[in-house]
């Protein structure tokens, strides 16, 4: 489903940082992959390269056989198939919850109004806050906002969902409600790539865990492998710090 081949990305401003250094990996359909690693290790950059929010300097990325980095690829069409959930929610503050979820359906998917609203209500039901349809984002708690953001991404019927630390900006008591939505999604067979520090989630839901450091994939394997006998020193060190 996703194939990443020798991808590198360097930032030059404010200083030269090799955010991704010859990264290769493959993610199958229906797989839930959790990416962990210390801050600045390139997790977000990898995720953002997948839907070309960041343009990789070199290498190849294929999603469903489509070459993401080719200038001939219709990037908007591709992005509609790849949902993304951000750490800071990024809901549209001037639109109601319902409008947040219908906007892209209307302008990108060209759905009819009723169809888009029906879909939005269905998804709000799914993430557990149908009563907030007419509220504005700043009237919601962080956990509710993030669930709306997930519903917004799901409204496009994506084949893949990318999550970049979806619970890092939340108060502890709200983390559970967002993780529950993600678990349901995983159970339904969604292909998911999740950057998170929630090791409980990784252990319970992930099919595979990838550990990154300094722009490289250091180690990958099943959660059991990871949490019981990691091979690399750096992985051990990181896990000892975080667990």
């Amino acid at each position: 489903m996703i194939r990443v081949e020798h991808v590198s990305k360097t930032f030059y401003v404010p200083q030269e940082v090799k955010a991704l250094d010859d990264v290769s990996c493959e993610i199958d359909k229906g797989e839930v992959v959790v990416i962990i690693g210390p801050s600045g290790s390139g997790k977000s950059t990898l995720l953002r390269c997948l839907n070309r929010l960041e343009f990789a300097d070199s290498g190849h990325i294929y999603i469903d056989g489509i070459d993401v980095l080719s200038p001939r690829t219709d990037i908007n069409k591709l992005r509609a198939e790849v949902g993304m959930v951000f750490q800071s929610f990024n809901l549209f503050p001037h639109k109601t919850v319902l409008e947040n979820i219908t906007l892209a359906q209307l302008v990108v998917r060209k759905r009819k109004k009723e169809e888009a609203v029906e879909k939005a209500m269905f998804l709000l039901e799914k993430v557990g806050i149908p009563e907030k349809a007419d509220a504005y984002p700043d009237q919601l708690s962080g956990g509710q906002q993030q669930r709306v953001a997930i519903a917004r991404a799901l409204a496009m019927d994506p084949k893949i969902m990318l999550f970049d630390e979806p619970t890092s900006a939340l108060d502890p008591e709200m983390i559970g409600e967002v993780l529950d939505v993600m678990k349901t999604l995983a159970r339904e067979g969604m292909t998911m790539v999740v950057v998170t520090h929630e090791m409980g989630f990784a252990r319970e839901v992930a099919d595979r865990v990838i550990f990154m450091d300094h722009g490289k994939i250091v180690e990958e394997g099943t959660p059991e492998h990871f949490f019981t006998n990691p091979i690399h020193e750096r992985t051990k060190l990181f896990l000892s710090q975080i667990l």
């Binding site: 839907n51 929010l53 908007n76 509609a80 906007l103 990108v108 917004r152």
Partner: peptide, 23 residues
């Protein structure tokens, strides 16, 4: 306007012009 707004709109498949206009 925070750049996250543009990124969120683009990540949903909106073109630059659509993101400008609606978001």
């Amino acid at each position: 306007i925070h750049r996250g707004q543009m990124e969120a709109a683009r990540s949903l498949g909106m073109s630059y012009a659509q993101a400008m206009r609606y978001v």
